[in-house]
Design a protein around this nucleic acid. Structure first.
Lengths: 195, 195
DNA sequence: CCACTTTTGGACTGCTTAGTCCAGAACAGC
DNA sequence: GCTGTTCTGGACTAAGCAGTCCAAAAGTGG
């Protein structure tokens, strides 16, 4: 049983608010004040609960990865076919390209771009997280092959890597300001190349 | 005839040094001191010759775009075939993925990722520059179609956009730490999808 | 060798930043 | 309602930042 004054904020909620800010502005361009305003907590609480700016950022990355990976895994399970799942993910980038968050690109890829190899821990976290997405694509490709939508002689690993690359490329384009229509055009080419 | 003390540094050379620093660290993470050290000039000279940090950055972007676009245009002209050119560009990412600069990704895409829509002028500069690369791919695709390496019923514009997206995706992967081998795997899939 | 123009180095300013610290507020258990 | 523990707000610190400014240096033209 805990004794003392109880916490006045929801940790998970604060984490998501922080994630959103980092997502939109990147790490360096986000000041502590920005974070505090979005999270609606005081400086002391932030340091008490999350450690500091960089620790908070790492937590955000992990939270983002877990949330996203879970969502996608669930989407794959519920999808009528492997190919439909892939298509939905890719078209999803186009649909989001005008909305608020769609423009933000992929937090993991943005981070890779911003940090490069500046911080080893961040770099390996990003690499491993991206691999998780690749694995998801791999599962989807295998399923599509079993369902007869993708030729069985194609190498599933290569295709998964290819799809992951394209997801990154599409998100980058969206962030650079490409229209949903432009993105949809590319998605069609990608889907066509899978047959 | 100019009168007064002559400039002691080469403007173009200084610009390239600055570009290199921005390229590796991004805009925010690059301090004026970093720039001064790399350019080997004094603060006054920088402000006198380039205006300031953000103006210098814009000049670097333009310089990068022009240099790169020229190089690629020349490479296309000298290439034995349109398809060979495309392949060379894409494999070039893999070859550079271990070298110093290869890891830096594409300055334009990095910038798009870092700035988003924070600065309208930068954003439009990036968008227009990326279009130039797309046009180059378009020319290459058309040539490849004329040479019989790419089916003529394919839409050249769509393919060019697709290739530009993939170039961005590959550079992003390289920056995220992917091995040259991994990148080469993806390039093979891309090239295969053009047939 | 003098007058004039332009560059250069470095001190300086004002601002923003991440992070620390402490006095007081808020609650649980007894 | 008292005690002990934990949270909270805001003042504070020290460092780093972009950008300014001026005196001295380094040339050119006559």
């Amino acid at each position: 049983m805990t004794v003392g004054r109880p916490i006045e904020f929801d940790t998970q909620q604060a984490l998501e608010a922080a994630t959103s800010v980092f997502w939109q502005h990147g790490y360096d361009a986000t000041s502590l004040d920005d974070l505090l305003a979005a999270m609606d907590i005081s400086k002391s609480s932030l340091y008490q609960a999350f450690g500091g700016k960089s620790e908070l950022f790492q937590s955000c990355l992990e939270n983002y990865r877990n949330t996203f990976a879970d969502k996608m895994r669930a989407a794959l399970d519920e999808s009528p076919s492997g190919l439909a799942f892939i298509e939905a993910i890719l078209f999803g980038v186009a649909d989001g390209a005008n909305a608020h968050m769609g423009r933000a690109g992929c937090l993991l890829i943005n981070t890779a771009s911003e940090f490069g190899q500046r911080d080893a821990r961040i770099a390996s976290l990003v690499t491993k997280s991206l691999e998780r997405f690749e694995d998801l694509f791999y599962a989807a490709v295998c399923r599509a092959q079993a369902e007869g939508d993708i030729p069985k002689n194609a190498d599933a690993r290569s295709l998964a890597l290819f799809l992951a690359t394209n997801l990154g490329g599409l998100k980058g384009m969206a962030r650079a300001g490409a229209s949903p229509e432009k993105i949809r055009t590319v998605v069609k080419v990608i889907m066509n190349s899978l047959k």
